[in-house]
Nucleic acid binder design. Structure first.
Lengths: 199, 199
DNA sequence: ACCAAGACTTACCAAATGGTAGAAAAATAG
DNA sequence: CTATTTTTCTACCATTTGGTAAGTCTTGGT
């Protein structure tokens, strides 16, 4: 029928959407299939089980995120502001693929079935980021703090911006969603002032 | 049997545990009942439906959190460091009732059935916190930034510390969990350096 | 033309889910 | 002790769930 892997990718896309909004348990294969105009067994054919589908979606998402960050971490150009590059990069992903961060949020819950898989895949990346930060601190280009805490804080903030905004939207004042560019600028400022060493 | 509302509270406690770890959809009333040595219908008797149970658990949790914060926000003592008090207060809750923050995280997902209820309950508190911060900024006691962003960032960080640590535990280096007191100190430092105005 | 492999479907199913109806047991009031 | 109310249980049930088995249809190679 569909000659190429077109169906498979359509399933992956819809699955990402569903997992990241209603969660893993909240996603029914039947509903997913129906929303695709497809029979459930087609899904099971491509991905052996529901768990298999989650794994596939997760793998794809982590890959995108990793590639985006790896690029920044790899460059050694001392003229560029690495922190700014990182924030920009993550923000770009968050804006282009907000569902992707939603999935991360969903899957990084302690009780999630895919939590260990996520650990394995994100582990090396985290390790690199942390050791890079610690290197910067050693060299005096960054104020000495708990690298992991800063990382967790920034990560949580961005994920929060991408997902949890919903709550604040009506909870806070009326107009809440500042242009994301401005938001990014302010997060950047926030991070920089607490990270740049005192001259 | 149990003469007082003892059973009801036992149910609430276990429900909080379950909701905050495996999520709402991941929680089965049968399992919950079994883990309590009770029949499912007893749960349905006290709380009309599963959703009713979630609402009850949520109400209780928000109440605890609100009381803890309200106390700090209310005091007008200019000699005390309000930020420090806030961080301490939230950390105390996070340490004593980590499940409570897990529930918040679960329920604050956009697609959650209890999201609107959470909005309504947390709304006023958020509003107060934000307007307080903006007041501080006006008075020059706090550097001018996006109050909501800072709030979201701090909130996400603490929730992250309470729940998402799991990922970093094995992902990052071996020993990761610094004593929470130290963690709190570093978050405090992190916040203060980016919030105190330049003299 | 034929056949093997891939893609997708229909037909089922056992288990689990949230929920209803009503009986039994326990606590309490008189 | 009896009547009543509160609490808990047994017995069911309709629906949904993820998954299996086996078929049909399509496509591409020879």
């Amino acid at each position: 029928m569909a000659p190429r892997g077109e169906t498979k990718e359509r399933i992956l896309a819809k699955a990402l959407e569903s997992f990241s909004t209603v969660g893993y348990d909240g996603t029914s294969l039947d509903d997913l299939a129906e929303s695709l105009g497809i029979r459930k067994q087609t899904i099971l054919y491509h991905f052996v089980s529901k768990r298999g589908l989650l794994n596939a979606v997760l793998d794809e998402s982590v890959k995108i995120l990793t590639e985006s960050l790896e690029e920044v971490l790899a460059s050694n150009d001392p003229h560029r502001d690495r922190i700014e590059d990182l924030v920009r990069s993550v923000f770009r992903v968050a804006l282009e693929q907000p569902l992707l961060l939603g999935l991360l949020r969903e899957v990084s819950r302690p009780g999630s079935p895919a939590a260990p898989r996520l650990k394995n895949q994100m582990g090396p990346l985290m390790e690199r980021a942390i050791s890079w930060m610690e290197g910067e601190m050693e060299a005096g280009r960054m104020r000495k703090t708990d690298a992991q805490l800063v990382l967790l804080s920034a990560y949580s903030t961005v994920v929060g911006l991408a997902t949890e905004i919903e709550i604040l939207r009506t909870a806070g004042v009326e107009r809440v969603l500042r242009p994301s560019a401005q938001r990014r600028q302010e997060l950047l400022h926030f991070l920089r002032t607490s990270l740049t060493p005192i001259e």
